[in-house]
Simulated scan of single mutants.
Amino acid sequence: MMTDIRTTLGVRPIINVSGTMTGLGASIVVPEAVDTIARMLPQFVEINDLQRRASEVIARLTGGETGFVTASCAAGITLAIAGAMTGTDLAAIERLPDARGLKDEVVVLSGHLVSFGAPVEQSVRIAGARVVPVGQVTSAYGYQLAGAITERTAAALYVVSHHTVQFGQIPLDEFAAVAHEKGVPVIVDAASEYDLKGFLAAGADVVVYSSHKFLGGPTGGIVAGRKDLVRAAFLQNIGIGRGMKVGKEGIAGTIAALKAWERRDHEGIRARELRALELWKIGLAARPGITATIVADPTDNPLDRLQVNVDRELAHITAWDLADALAAGNPPVIVRDHEVEHGYFFMDPCNLHPDQEHQVLARLNEELDKAQQSNSIIATPLADRRKRRVASLLRWPD
């Protein structure tokens, strides 16, 4: 048996039931991409020509006119916004983020101004633009979008994510119609979405995806859509995009991942994920204070997760302490805990290796048994947990 590379490097061999999170390595890269990357790394290639080949594949899979690969979805957002500001004016491209003389406003729904590991608005500011919020966090209407668009508006950004407010927002088709009536292009952040064609079909002019999430490619972003806007975004590589460049292996690996996506047994993968969810749900059914429910993805991706509700009085532990105990044990199991203050967390089976679903269940039972044996309810202050996370960041690399 091969030694786990993570052990060799001195990092923890975690089990990821959080999902396609960049901070955990995003996804299991598909074998086709791994092989392509290995074969490309020793070779030389004209990068712009390789991007042309990527464009052909991206256009076929997304229905867009053209596309290219960049460093990440966040980079793609910045480049797409910059392209909407400068067009193909090379002098303007070299001046950014100095946006004097350019349209420099980007309208975004207030309910979409979230963090995906960094603030959405920062991806806008890097281009030299400023965000114009539309509506309120929990409600937005077409007239508010129309009223926010001025002669300085370069683009309208729409974010599709489980992090955004999931009610009271303007649907994409209406958002696009209002923006287009005002002559403003629409850019969609679809970093972690399965649907490669629906957003352009709904009216987006440019869509940006992560290549390293559900696609199972290397770390990167995919920019797809209207040729003039994608070309202008691509040209940012001689300006602010220089620091967001992607290598030959990233482009080739993304091409391979896209082609593999066309051949993937999506139904078979979904069936395997559902078996893991059922295993966990049944395995937790008799646990005091634990209610496990299979729930659909909030942005309509064809996948489900297990929502684990924790009654601290009966389970003898809070949801966040259980999540932390799972992460601290052996093997470490990382759950999706972004809403844990409400007394629950999620478990996502999309990144499991064979048999890991059983290891996850064993770890859950182990930590729940420990909690039941505790003389008091395990309930550390949630505020302390938040402080520890910030302190841990500030201590890096220690």
Rank of each mutant, 00 (worst) to 15 (best):
D189R: 08
A191I: 09
S192R: 14
Y194I: 12
Y194H: 13
K197D: 04
K197H: 12
A201Q: 15
G203L: 13
G203N: 15
S210L: 02
S211N: 03
K213I: 02
G216R: 07
G217L: 08
T219G: 14
G220W: 03
G220V: 06
G221A: 08
G221D: 07
I222V: 13
A224V: 08
R226Q: 12
L229E: 10
L229T: 11
V230R: 01
Q236C: 07
Q236P: 07
Q236K: 05
N237M: 15
G241Q: 07
G241R: 06
G243R: 12
M244S: 14
M244F: 14
K248A: 15
I251D: 03
I251M: 07
I251Y: 01
A252C: 10
A252D: 06
G253L: 05
I255P: 01
A260Q: 07
A260F: 08
E262N: 00
E262K: 14
R263H: 11
R264T: 09
D265E: 08
H266P: 00
E267N: 11
E267S: 11
E267C: 00
G268E: 10
I269N: 01
L274C: 01
E278P: 00
I282P: 04
G283D: 02
A286P: 04
A286G: 10
A286E: 15
R287L: 11
G289D: 05
T291Q: 13
A292L: 05
V295R: 14
A296T: 12
P298K: 04
P298Q: 05
T299V: 13
D300P: 00
P302L: 11
R305M: 15
Q307H: 05
N309W: 03
D311F: 01
D311S: 09
E313H: 11
A315Q: 04
A315C: 07
A315E: 01
H316M: 13
I317Y: 02
T318S: 15
W320S: 10
D321E: 13
A323W: 02
D324E: 14
A327P: 04
A327Y: 05
G329C: 01
P331I: 05
P332C: 00
P332N: 07
V333Y: 03
I334E: 02
R336L: 08
R336F: 09
